[in-house]
């Protein structure tokens, strides 16, 4: 484990002193952002777009990115925890997928070790059937599922991911043992989409952005969405009488062991960025829903998510201790 270099320590001390003296928002100089995923994915885009907004709003002067993908973010997190301890300029992207991934991988490092800065965006999960499917609506689907759980094959992303968790939550809601969900995991969006529109699985579950165009073109029919209220013309699961809500959120973290003041400075910097026009434009272009929750409230939220997801993963026979 790398210890704090004298230079980094001085810098940290200087910033802390400056904060204490001025008590006002001080621009963070040189931010290093760990993106625990390979370039091009959701966390990468979110991280880089946030970085752009931080620069544009003047919240930071300079920003460097470090992509370290693998094991649902566990590898990047492990490096972040080890190398950035106490560094007030270090940030890391993360999200809901990481919570499940860390539980499943029985990771030695956890999100409780890093400092919560802010929850940023969310995306909701949509349940679809191929256009030609005999399943009419959500009620019809759940009735068939209840009658014979195995007969409904659910196609989505990797086992234990957001898609699988939603299927598990729905099973629990209608009184089917989550372990009975006949879940068929696919790698990457393309394979799953092809299996769904080709009619090889009964139902598809994924983030709205993955399916939106196929719903629009009429190759898939949307049955419900995992948000609280309807999005576009897709009614939420709750509105249809199934009390299930699931947000695939993304957020940002600070290094372990930074002070309250340093945490506050980073929250301030991120908040400034999210209020800038460039961030608004990003949200619109990427179709992300803002899901702001700062600092320790965000920390409490993660703790709750950790519990909820841990329970459902255990129900799905995944992530057992």
């Amino acid at each position: 484990m790398k210890s704090l270099s004298p230079r980094a320590f001085l810098r940290a001390a200087a910033i802390a002193a400056g904060l204490a003296a001025a008590g006002a928002a001080v621009a963070v100089d040189n931010v290093k952002m760990m993106i625990p995923a390979n370039p091009g994915g959701g966390w990468d885009t979110t991280g880089r777009e946030l970085g752009k907004a931080m620069l544009a709003s003047g919240a930071v002067k300079n920003i460097q990115y470090d992509n370290k993908g693998g094991a649902a973010g566990a590898i990047g997190l492990a490096q972040f925890v080890a190398a950035s301890k106490g560094d007030p300029n270090a940030l890391m992207m993360g999200g809901m997928v990481m919570v499940g991934g860390l539980i499943q991988n029985k990771s030695a490092v956890t999100l409780a070790q890093v400092t919560p800065i802010a929850r940023l965006t969310s995306e909701y999960e949509v349940i679809v059937v191929p256009a030609s499917s005999p399943i009419k609506d959500m009620k019809d689907l759940m009735a068939k599922f209840k009658a014979n759980p195995g007969s409904i094959s659910w196609g989505g992303g990797s086992a234990g991911g957001t898609d699988h968790i939603l299927a598990g939550l729905l099973a629990k809601e209608v009184g089917v043992e989550p372990g009975k969900v006949n879940y068929v995991p696919f790698k990457g969006g393309g394979e799953a989409v092809a299996a769904i529109i080709g009619g090889h699985v009964s139902v598809g579950v994924s983030g709205l952005s993955e399916f939106a165009q196929h719903i629009q073109s009429g190759k898939m029919r949307a049955l419900g969405i995992s948000s609280a209220a309807k999005i576009g013309s897709i009614a939420s699961l709750k509105e249809q009488g199934f009390n299930v809500e699931l947000a695939n959120w993304r957020g940002i973290f600070g290094a372990p062991g930074i002070t309250k003041e340093q945490q506050a400075a980073l929250v301030k910097a991120v908040e400034t960025a999210t209020k800038h026009a460039s961030w608004a434009e990003t949200l619109k272009r990427q179709d992300w829903t803002p899901y702001w929750l700062p600092g320790d409230q965000y920390g409490a939220f993660i703790e709750e998510e950790n519990k909820r997801i841990g329970e459902i993963l255990a129900g799905l026979n995944l992530g057992k201790k």
Partner: peptide, 9 residues
């Protein structure tokens, strides 16, 4: 590695 079908390593 992680088995994609069960999520187990």
């Amino acid at each position: 590695g992680i088995d994609n079908q069960t999520g187990q390593a």
